[in-house]
Write a protein that binds this DNA or RNA. Structure first.
Length: 428
RNA sequence: GGUGGGGUUCCCGAGUGGUCAAAGGGAUCAGACUGUAAAUCUGACGGCUCAGCCUUCGGAGGUUCAAAUCCUCCCCCCACCA
């Protein structure tokens, strides 16, 4: 099956240009394709995962993906899908962020032997000269067309308006496409649905300047069943960087997937075969939790490796009781089968304290605050009053409670806030 | 540059001298119900040494027993005009 059909079947495709020609092109060529990533942070997050997975699928089908880091465009800021002007990044920040992004992408895509490329558009964009650029590139752009583009129009209508610097973003992205088409014969650009205007502009520019037919694919904006943009939690974005968002939290993020999203996410965010995912569609009720376990395991494995996935699985089993993974569910997944009742919980966040400074000295409340389970003492007070604070799985009744010897089991104290947030205290 | 309208607690948004830690909604958090889901219901939602106290309403001063609310200056945003 061609890569385009695979992507379509798995829910990646929102729109494509020249559908038939694109299909032929991908069938008959070892194509090069690219997606741009903004270096606005030193880590990518789940919001970019659709793009990343699409590149990975491309590579698995023998095509060559390019991850383009917008080191040059990051100096400008894309107005698409933004309601306000983005803060401009400094060169140093961009460099740092770029490095982080490259590292993460290499978990998903194989960059060895030029099977994939990582480029930075700063390489060509920062060398542009204004007059030359206007004359050679600017002439191909119609203001009439641009102001009709959704990204521009919505900003023109908003009271914040649109600055000239942002208005130019489209030209620069189109220039990127032209550059890549010229130097790497990259004729396919992909991106989120908010990139449609930019992609189409690039295709036009490639045709006008190089006389080549280029193509575009956009992905749908993935929202959860409750209508929220995918990848946002109370803690903000779900980062792929294990330093910002631990593999255990990442795993938990996927386990907490809404029932209605399970099959959609399995298709988008794992490589499990669709025939197996089809079966999950027929499942409902508590059974779906088993599928969520596999989703979480696979997603964690892809982003953080099998070891971390296994650790997270075990930690979850010991925190939330047993986890059952039937042998015949999604058989291609490498998750261990059977019932996992208890195990080490090494992936749960921990802190270490000096025992003498804690026992009979410290208030339990302070441990909650230090462990970031509560924002402040008032927060801790509320939590206790509402019965959401637990020490070793026993509800904490009093705000004034001090840690005592009997709270310590094997040199450890397990704190819990609400149903899902745990923190382990190790005493030395 | 001119004229007018604004900047309120995470967000939207009420509030024009005391009854204001500030309506309402959203988000969030906890509890109940569940399946580590959704929906629903209940409660919480600035901080603290918590029946009390302290710090917030763009910034700095001032008037007043008392200011988010009045005055002065400054900063920023928006609309229309140039």
């Amino acid at each position: 099956m061609g890569v385009l059909s695979v992507l379509k079947e798995r829910g990646f495709i929102e729109a494509t240009t020249h559908t038939q020609e694109l299909e032929d092109y991908l069938e008959n060529n070892k194509a090069t394709c690219y997606i741009g990533f903004d270096p606005t942070a030193s880590s990518l997050h789940v919001g970019s995962l659709v793009c990343i997975m699409a590149l990975a699928h491309m590579q698995r089908h023998g095509h060559r993906p390019i991850g383009l880091v917008g080191g040059g465009t990051g100096l400008i800021g894309d107005p698409s899908g933004k309601t306000e002007l983005r803060k401009v990044l400094t060169l140093d920040q961009i460099d740092e962020n770029k490095a982080g992004i490259q590292k993460q992408l290499s978990r998903f895509i194989d960059f060895s032997e030029d099977k994939a490329l990582m480029l930075d558009n700063a390489a060509w964009l920062t060398k542009l000269e204004y007059i030359t650029f206007l004359r050679d590139i600017g002439r191909h752009f119609s203001i009439n067309k641009m102001i009709k583009a959704e990204s521009v129009r919505s900003r023109m209508e908003s009271e914040d308006g649109l600055t000239f610097i942002e208005f130019n973003y489209m030209l620069l992205q189109a220039y990127d496409f032209m550059e890549l088409a010229g130097t790497h014969d990259c004729l396919l650009q992909m991106g989120g649905s908010d990139q449609w205007g930019n992609i189409v502009a690039g295709i036009d520019l490639v045709r006008r300047t190089l006389g080549k037919q280029a193509f575009g694919i956009t992905f749908p904006l993935i929202t959860t069943a409750s209508g929220i943009k995918m990848g946002k939690t109370h803690k903000g974005a779900v980062w792929l960087d294990p330093e910002r968002f631990s593999p255990y939290e990442y795993y938990q993020f996927w386990v907490n997937t809404d029932d209605q999203d399970v099959t959609k996410f399995l298709a988008l965010f794992t490589f499990l075969p669709m025939e197996e995912i089809e079966i999950v569609k027929k499942m409902d009720g508590a059974d779906l939790n088993k599928a969520k376990t596999i989703l979480a395991y696979e997603a964690t494995k892809i982003a953080h490796g099998e070891d971390e996935a296994l650790k997270s699985l075990k930690a979850s089993a010991s925190m939330f009781g047993s986890v059952e993974v039937p042998a015949d569910l999604l058989p291609s997944a490498s998750i261990p089968r059977g019932t996992l009742s208890c195990g080490t919980d090494e992936s749960v966040p921990t802190s270490t304290y000096n025992k003498g400074a804690v026992v009979d000295k410290m208030f339990v409340v302070d441990l909650f605050c230090d462990a970031d389970l509560c924002k402040s003492k008032s927060d801790a007070r509320r939590l206790i009053k509402q019965g959401g604070a637990y020490i070793n799985n026993e509800r904490l009744e009093s705000f004034e409670q001090v840690v005592v010897e009997s709270d310590v089991n094997d040199g450890e104290i397990l704190l819990r806030a609400g149903k899902k947030k745990y923190h382990k205290i190790i005493l030395k």
